[in-house]
Design a protein around this nucleic acid. Sequence first.
DNA 1: CTAGGGTTAG
Length: 690
Amino acid sequence: MIHECGQFLPLSTTLTYLLSSAAPGPKSISVTRWQTLLYNSANAKCIRTTKQLHAYTITSGLLLSPKSTHLLSLLASAYALGGQIVVARYLFDKSPDRTFFSYKTMIRMCAEDGSSHKALKLFAEMLESGRYKPDNYTFPFVVRACGDSLLPQLGTAVHGLALVSGYGSDTFTANCLLAMYMNVGDREGAKRVFDAMEEPTIVSWNTMISGYFRNDSAKEALMLFRKMVDGGVETDAATVVSVLPACGFLKDLELGREVHLLVIKKGLGKKVSVRNALVDMYVKCGKMDEARSVFDKIIEKDVVTWTTMIHGYSLNGDIRSALGLCQLMQFEGVKPNAVTLASLLASCANLPNLKLGKCLHGWALRQRLESDVNVETALIDLYAKCKCMRLSFKVFFKTSKTRTVPWNAILSGCIYNVLAEEAIELFREMLLEGVKPNDATFKSLLPAFAVQADMQQAMSLHSYLIRSGFILRTEIATGLVDIYCKCGNLKSGHRVFSGVPLKKRDIVLWSALIAGYGTHGHGEIVLSLFYDMVQSGIRPNEVTFTSVLHACSHAGMVDDGLSLFNFIYGSFPLCLRTNHYTCMVDLLGRAGRLEEAHELIKSMPFQPSPTVWGALLGACAIHENVELGEEAAKWLFELEPANTGNYVLMGNIYAALGRWKDAENVRHRMNEVGLLKSPAHSVIEVRKPA
DNA sequence: CTAGGGTTAG
């Protein structure tokens, strides 16, 4: 009993004394006395004492007295605090009279145990009874339970209740609210709470920083860290392990080094986790030397330390160093785990190196790590990238198939190996098995539907996306727009586009629709969509310009194309790339405005690429313009002497005008650079009259 | 009595 209760020895002694000296029976120990004993036993988390007390309540008939009905709920609390949550719940459910203490304890233990729904149910019951008011030891756990059950609306309601109950300025409650909002992905909600806090503690700052990072706002995380340091707020180990991943993600080496200095200055490096985070930061920033020097200084390396470093070498394609380190790690008595292995396998997949991958697969079997999801997923991916879909499927069929990741791996594997139809079939099976797809699933799957361009399939996918709610995600709606456009059904594509609320329309979505209309030759619609987009406040980029210019070119809308080009030139001059000029030269050239095309090339702010001259030469071939053709050819023969197409085009221009001698010269020139072996030269000869 | 923190993968 001593070892179990630790410093609470007096409690057990008291109990032993009472039980041995007094005769059993409810009257021998007063109710108040019992109450104290139960409280003490609960707070001491001493399950053995609790069990003794429980036994006594049964044999003595203690609970039969009307004065002691509340004792059962206290007993339940004692069990709960002792870690026996199931027994606790059973007893608590039977308790006729539940005390405030027992409610609080049960709520807390349920929340910590992961039974957040039960915790919320108890809280609701407590409120309904109207006997007790939640306090500063209640709200934190209830808030946490809301976050764990992913019930943000309920969380907000509890937040409101905490405010009206006067716990708005309670630090613990506020910190839990921060964590809750961050856990459900509500950065704004968290920020509101944070801004309203009079004195945020280290914990508040840390929660915000890590929350921002976890919610894809690494930039905000770093900005907050800056503000924290500049504001003179203390930082601790949790701060640095929250901020370092963000530095790594953004490759912000400068700030990463600053954090490193902070770690040294404050002596935070005693913890392995801090040093591991440093190694990881350097790895992610691509600074393997610095990562290694931090790594080498860690005396007590754990699996994570080794794995982080191994992963670093893997990422850099240095599989030799990665394997060497893996061996060294085992020499030092640290066993690689599934993560280590998955990292090595991923490296084999990216190289790709099938032979080594197979060796590692064998090793995984011997280490009994083969049935770990991470390893399985890495193996599926490995074999797919090595174009061994048979092996990929073999691994896949052995997986438990209840989790989403292996499905995603096999789907993306199929698509990598141009098995779009199989991917779609697998997706159907996945749904039948009741596995929930996620964003990553659609990221690889939607292109498969676009490749198939099957209207029937597109429609059934569309209905699924509506039913499952995935259509609400802009990236997914974008994929669907693309699919419909590829099917040639622009109307349906446009309808999906219109279904996305104005605020959620991003550049990618607009571009998908614009490109769709563009490839089908609807130049005018493309232009009006483009101006609509700019009007709605979205800044177009190079990709948009390319597709709009292409559309103009495709539809032969020369003047519209020109005015658009001038618009870009005036508003976004830095966005202009070679391919935009190529597009314009092509557009003007086709229309026979060769001089203008030439002028445009001469006005280019950078060296015209062969593609630009190629477009001009092509246009000259159509319009049989020797002068400009020669100008273009002069550049092209210089820039890409091995491109037969250029000689053919130029030869054709001469031939068309009956200048056989010049045509012959071009042929000679091609001969000189050793291209005559190529079959393309015959084109010139074919057009030569007998 | 309570709150925040690292490594893989999609």
